[in-house]
Amino acid sequence: MYQDTNNLHIATENITKSYRSGDAKTVALKNVSLRIAQGEFIMITGRNGSGKSTLLHQLGLLDSPDTGEIYINGREVTRLSEKKRMDMRLRQLGYIFQEYALVAELSALENVMLPAMMIGTSKDARDKALTLLAKVGLRDKARRLPTQLSGGEQQKVAIARALINAPRILFADEPTANLDTIASKDVLRIFKSLNEQEHITIAMITHEPEELEYATRHIKLSDGKLV
């Protein structure tokens, strides 16, 4: 059983996840036990199909493991109802997808405001969103729609959206995969800054070895197991 400590932010205990496609069963995660301390910046690497995204989905409460437990801030969250998981995603976790995942009909500002509007007033949400957009260097493009932004800019908007409710944990699933080198460095510098200056715990998947230097720790998955 996982024992909570003051500086442990995320932990998993023997989590297993498998998928079934027709008669074929794929075991994506095999008894993965992981500890991430508060303020760590973890990079997760591994070949395609090694289980990286599956692991992040479990940690980000987008999915549930078949067996094992997940702890966030010392609380067992594996079997929480969807309502409570949703509330945790809204208030405590930030999630950044590979493909930006912005709402096409909303401007950059409105995309960022959206999660904050769930828990506060529109004015508060707007003020916070503008501050965050300024922080990622997009204050002057706040009114632009996603289609009017470059890939790197869209990803920065997604980062700002993930930060709007001041989460202490940020998950990023290959956030630089679709970006050029300059945009990738911009995004990574933002992550580094969030981690170092605001002590946000970050778990990020990457395929790029040169990105590992931004992390405080590197873990590798192979065939669903931590290596």
Partner: peptide, 16 residues
Amino acid sequence: KKQIGILRAIGIKPYI
């Protein structure tokens, strides 16, 4: 569908 999934992922309640 994908957009709806993302809205759920960032914590937007289904009823909304």
